[in-house]
């Protein structure tokens, strides 16, 4: 079943006198199935957030349509089917973490006992148990982000709309979120995710679309879009210099160009995770 269907969607912002100010979206069409992670990529102002706001009923489209599990955005059915995490923290500052989750649970129609149980589970899962009774106002940005994700998860919606979900999180937190997205995909949830940080989405998305100035520039699976079919990378271990020289010679003999040969560099993110992950494991006595 199609979880999210966006069809020929356009949005024009007009001023008080009805004059056209900004064309935020121009004929966008997308569809997202259950168990799929779809990434929306594009620079600031490309129309990602506008698409999300229309999908959750905050804005009305100028033309075209959006359906969430077959329901029109803004209706209770669509709102209940959707878990929306906006770009900025939208938590209520004077509620505690547990109160925040109970409120979302109550709005999702959970009983008090169920809401309390699920809130406890989510706080533990997102490493916030120690802050359960602290007011959100005193949370760091990363903690607020994690609590925001927990508040979306408590309703157990079928469609997740995540606007810059890793924004403000440290690399470990970002990895945790990516793992969470992977788990949700396994559970058959449809996830629409946006970011202007391309690396964020690379390991997470099944399909991605590129937006610019409200127009869809390209769309496809990561395999289709990213695979460099004109080159081949061979990784060997251990890096024996003699063997490598022989391999390079063989390649040239076969008429291939050796473009690059050497020990690859890890990304800074991978290094950070390996260092801090090790420290965390030591503390936990693993």
């Amino acid at each position: 079943m199609t979880a999210v269907e966006i069809s020929n969607l356009s949005k024009t912002f007009r001023d008080f006198f009805g004059r056209r100010r900004v064309q935020a979206l121009d004929g966008l069409s997308l569809s997202l199935k259950a168990g799929e992670v779809f990434g929306l990529l594009g620079p600031n102002g490309s129309g990602k957030s506008t698409t999300f706001k229309i999908a959750v009923g905050l804005l009305r489209p100028s033309s075209g349509s959006v359906t969430i599990q077959g329901a029109r955005p803004g209706t209770l059915a669509a709102r209940r089917a959707t878990g929306f995490l906006p770009e900025d923290s939208t938590l209520l500052p004077f509620l505690t973490a547990i109160e925040t989750l109970k409120l979302h649970g109550a709005l999702a129609g959970l009983s008090r006992a169920d809401a309390a149980r699920k809130a406890g589970e989510l706080l533990e899962r997102l490493d916030l148990t120690h802050a359960a009774k602290r007011r959100v106002k005193g949370f760091s940005k990363g903690m607020q982000r994690r609590l925001g994700i927990a508040s979306v998860l408590i309703a157990d919606p079928d469609v997740f709309i995540l606007d810059e979900p890793t924004s403000g999180l440290d690399p470990l937190g970002a990895v945790q979120v990516k793992e969470l997205i992977g788990e949700l995909r396994k559970q058959g949830k449809a996830i629409l995710i946006s970011s202007h940080l391309l690396g964020e989405l690379e390991n997470v998305c099944d399909r991605v679309a590129f937006l610019n100035k409200g127009k869809l520039l390209n769309e496809g699976t990561l395999e289709d879009l990213l695979r460099e079919r004109e080159v081949h990378e061979l990784r060997v271990s251990p890096p024996d210099p003699e063997a490598i020289k022989a391999l390079e010679a063989l390649a040239r003999e076969k008429g291939l160009d050796v473009i690059r040969s050497g020990s690859p560099m890890r990304t800074l993110e991978a290094f950070y995770i390996s260092v801090l992950g090790k420290q965390k494991d030591d503390k936990e006595g693993k």
């Binding site: 009923g57 803004g74 209770l76 709102r79 929306f84 906006p86 939208t90 209520l92 709005l107 999702a108």
Partner: peptide, 13 residues
Amino acid sequence: TVKRGWTVLPARR
């Protein structure tokens, strides 16, 4: 506003 959180709660406006 979206920033203040109330309008994105999973309830009708």
